[in-house]
Amino acid sequence: MTDDDLRTTLRRADPAASLPPLAPTRVAHLLEQTMATPYADAPAQTATPSRWRRPALLAAATVIALAAAGAGWLTLRPSSGDDPAGTAAPVSAAPSVTRLTGSGIAAKCIAPTAQVLAERADLAFAATVRDVAGDTVTLQVTHVYKGAAIDLIEVPQAPGASEGLMGSGAFEAGKKYLVAASQGSIMTCGYSGEADVEGLSALYDTAF
């Protein structure tokens, strides 16, 4: 029995062979129903009350390398007085800010390996949290393991986004973190977290 015969035989038992196509009105209804549901992608510009209605699932995938001039205010704006851990923000001429998104609650975890980290991460760095404003966290990069040299990283502090972050599960001002990202989305599930979590820095050393 050849592959083709086998396939033909199997197809005769296909229960969906006689399934009539869905009526166009039903298709339209399904589409409308689906698209009426809010989706989240672009990070919230300001902390408005409506952000609480955003679904935790963030559409991940965009790295927005902001023009230094556009984001310069982040570095230059007046210090709120609690400059964490004495990280005197180096007001260099043109700091580059990269924005990452979270992978959201869709992340499923298996044990992290250095190989996966090395293969999947296109950006990996050590950083200290400079400040937390609303649900935007600004990280001051101290060491780049992989990727272009950058100074500042913006990440969301959304509840869904930091799920799976090792350590306390959230970014806290002044603490040091190891963060890996793939296509603009933070890799959670044991690949990013507080720098002193057991095994994490060893994982980074092995991978890069």
Binding site: D14, P15, A16, L19, L30, L31, Q33, T34, M35, T37, Y39, A40, D41, P55, L57, A59, A60, A61, T62, A106
Partner: peptide, 26 residues
């Protein structure tokens, strides 16, 4: 339709579409 009963199929179809809509960029 090949794997479950019609009622479950309807529910799961809506859910699948919703995920496709939310994760369209992926």
């Amino acid at each position: 339709a090949r794997r479950t009963d019609p009622a479950t199929a309807d529910d799961v179809l809506s859910e699948t579409l919703l995920i496709c809509w939310r994760r369209l960029d992926e």
